[in-house]
Design a protein around this nucleic acid. Structure first.
Length: 269
DNA sequence: CTTCACACCTGGCCGC
DNA sequence: TGCGGCCAGGTGTGAA
């Protein structure tokens, strides 16, 4: 489900809702949602006062003043909500109760989401590439690519760039006019520069719209995003390209469906 | 190094 | 109505 813009939206709402609060109780309804020792996880979190909430790629990180740090990865269907809707109760996996009487619910239909403790914030989420929100960072990363893997595959690789998922990879490639199968190292300077400009734009616009809600994604306040109203290619196969009218095509790349306009995104190699 | 199948899970949708 | 097959914002593993 959630990619960088959705996770960023959730993190911003979490800051409003839980910073300063102390966890009174943690209850696991689906223990496998927690990686590592479940008893240690619950023990360390009990009594923890949330000092800060972070995002790193698609990870949400919560930290206390004494250095306790844990992450939540929502994978496909995970969500964090203050209040549970009726249909959420069946999929409640973890519940955090705070001293002030409020709660935070980790709801996850498909049970792919994962929570885990780390020794510190610095030692968490190893192997993630840089954040893709700055043009200069992206340009450096794109210029350094020497792989022949398809650019779409590379954008989805979290060790190269952290936070991009299937929707925004497709949208950014469309915005840049690059065919998703283009070998990463074959991008010319103009394409590198345009992609480095487009990606942060696509992501920031989506953040401004609180992300893309296709099915399950909801914010902490149980609001949906609005970016689904502004997609150019994702989920639009067979429909006319909003730029040129050609039917959007769909093909499988890196095991994921990829949407593109065969006219606006010509293969250059 | 890279691709690919498969695993982890549940539910919605479509065709028959 | 029921059933099978296919699909889904993600990631990790092991085989080829």
């Amino acid at each position: 489900m959630p990619e960088l813009p959705e996770v960023e939206t959730i993190v911003r709402e979490l800051r409003r809702h839980i910073v300063g609060k102390t966890i009174a109780a943690v209850r696991l309804f689906w223990p496998r949602s927690v990686e590592g020792s479940q008893s240690e996880f619950c023990r360390r979190l009990r009594g923890m006062t949330v000092a800060a909430v972070f995002r790193r790629g698609k990870y949400i990180g919560l930290e206390s003043a004494d250095g306790t740090f844990f992450t939540i990865h929502l994978r496909m269907t995970g969500k964090l909500v203050q209040e549970m809707a009726a249909q959420d109760r069946k999929h409640l996996r973890v519940r955090f109760n705070f001293l002030d009487g409020t709660a935070l619910h980790f709801v996850d239909t498909r049970k792919f989401g994962r929570l885990r403790l780390w020794p510190s914030r610095e030692q968490s989420c190893p192997g993630l590439g840089p954040e893709p929100l700055r043009q200069a960072t992206l340009l450096a990363v794109l210029r350094a690519l020497s792989t022949t893997r398809a650019i779409k595959t590379v954008l989805l690789d979290q060790t190269i760039l952290a936070g991009i998922g299937n929707i925004y990879a497709d949208e950014a490639l469309f915005a840049t006019g690059i065919h998703p199968l283009t070998p990463a190292a074959a991008l010319n300077h103009g394409q590198q520069k345009r992609l480095a400009r487009s990606l942060p734009l696509v992501l920031r616009l989506a953040i401004g719209r609180r992300g893309t809600t296709l099915r399950d994604y909801r914010t902490v306040e149980d609001r949906s995003g609005e970016n689904q109203e502004h997609l150019f290619v994702y989920g639009r196969s067979g429909q006319p390209c909003l730029t040129c009218g050609t039917a959007i095509e769909k093909m499988r790349i890196a095991g994921r469906s990829s949407h593109f306009c065969p006219r606006c995104q010509k293969k250059t190699v």
